[in-house]
């Protein structure tokens, strides 16, 4: 085939300004507890949690092709890890780190079961597995059983300081999550998964270890959700099994990513902000809020499958995190059918 010489590039048009704006934004966010009232930072904690779990779901579904409806398993595991470790004297802020580790550790054996299912069956299978985690955890009396527990070890921290620390923790987890996705997708695993997304059979044939790449995604995604669960419990100071293991978390992740743009690192961030703003605006609307959100997600999934960011990206080539290799093929002058032998 003799199409024009393809040029492979990674940097999008807007990469450089992004770094500058990003650095400034990050500084402002870090300084925020000194600048604004506590209610602002405390509501931002939930935005950061949304960004984390949505980024993790995007990593799984948008890049790994693994559509899970069971990531709440790891949110719950993370939250309970922090509670259990706090009982043992581990400071909850440190516990959040351990939450990520525990979630990833449990995700490994889980993946061997879940990966037996494909496509839609994987989705429902992970949901069942999340239920199993919940039903097993509520059997542990020391963790409060079905009614849940409060977090120990936070009473001696001053409330204002605690709010600030929790905010920084959430911000830190969000930044690390997004950075991890970025780093993973730029590396070999990202390449492998891009190959799989384009043509799974060909990728397997050319020696890409698809299953391993997917498993890494699954573990990382579990770790992120575990940390998010840890942040949630540190923020709320208590955990309730039905809430922390609720499939509602999956709904949030999915809606955020679909609306923001699946398969783009920017998608979950854009989606989370939209979701968060809608949540604030429609706080009084009760369940109608979710009805509306569900309808929007259905509409976006069918009419705008690339989501908000994908649409922006397609139209203006805008990209904040250049991870995909863009192949720009010069149009061939003459039609040149390939000859198969």
């Amino acid at each position: 085939m003799s199409a024009g010489v393809p040029a492979v590039s990674r940097s999008g048009r807007s990469t450089r300004p992004t770094s500058v704006v990003g650095a400034v934004l990050l500084l402002v966010l870090v300084a925020l507890p000194f600048l604004v009232y506590e209610d602002v930072t405390s509501s931002l904690v939930s935005l950061f949690v949304l960004i984390v779990i949505a980024s993790m779901w995007n990593l799984l579904a948008g890049f790994g092709g693994l559509v899970s409806v069971g990531q709440q398993a790891f949110i719950g595991v993370g939250a309970y890890t922090v509670v259990a470790l706090a009982d043992a004297g581990v400071p909850p802020y440190l516990g959040v780190l351990m939450a990520a580790v525990t979630a990833a550790a449990l995700a490994l054996p889980t993946s061997f079961l879940a990966f037996r299912l494909r496509g839609d069956y994987f989705a429902v299978g992970t949901w069942v597995i999340a239920e199993v985690y919940r039903l097993v955890l509520v059997k542990i009396d020391s963790l409060g059983g079905p009614s849940g527990r409060s977090l120990t070890g936070m009473n001696d921290v001053d409330a204002t300081m605690r709010a600030a620390f929790t905010y920084w923790l959430a911000l830190g987890v969000a930044v690390v999550s997004v950075a991890t996705c970025f780093w993973l997708l730029r590396g070999r695993i990202g390449l492998a998964l891009t190959a799989v997304r384009d043509d799974e059979v060909a990728a397997r044939a050319s020696g890409v270890d698809v299953t391993r790449a997917k498993r890494v995604m699954y573990l990382v995604s579990a770790a992120g959700c575990g940390a998010a669960g840890g942040v949630l419990v540190v923020d709320a100071l208590s955990v309730q099994p039905n809430a922390i293991f609720s499939v509602q978390w999956s709904a949030s992740m999915i809606f955020i990513v679909v609306i923001g743009g699946i398969g783009y690192l920017e998608g979950p961030i854009v989606g989370a902000i939209v979701y968060f703003l809608l949540q604030q605006v429609l706080a009084d609307a009760g369940s109608w809020y979710l009805v509306l959100l569900g309808c929007v997600a259905i509409l976006v999934a069918t009419r705008l499958p690339r989501g908000l960011w994908g649409t922006v990206h397609d139209r203006w080539g805008l990209s904040l995190f250049p991870v995909d290799y863009r192949v720009t093929r010069a149009p061939a002058a003459e039609p040149c059918p390939a000859v198969r032998t």
Partner: peptide
């Protein structure tokens, strides 16, 4: 389809 049916479920 998954996204649509999941959205339908929530709705």
């Amino acid at each position: 389809t998954l996204l649509v049916t999941f959205g339908l479920s929530v709705v």
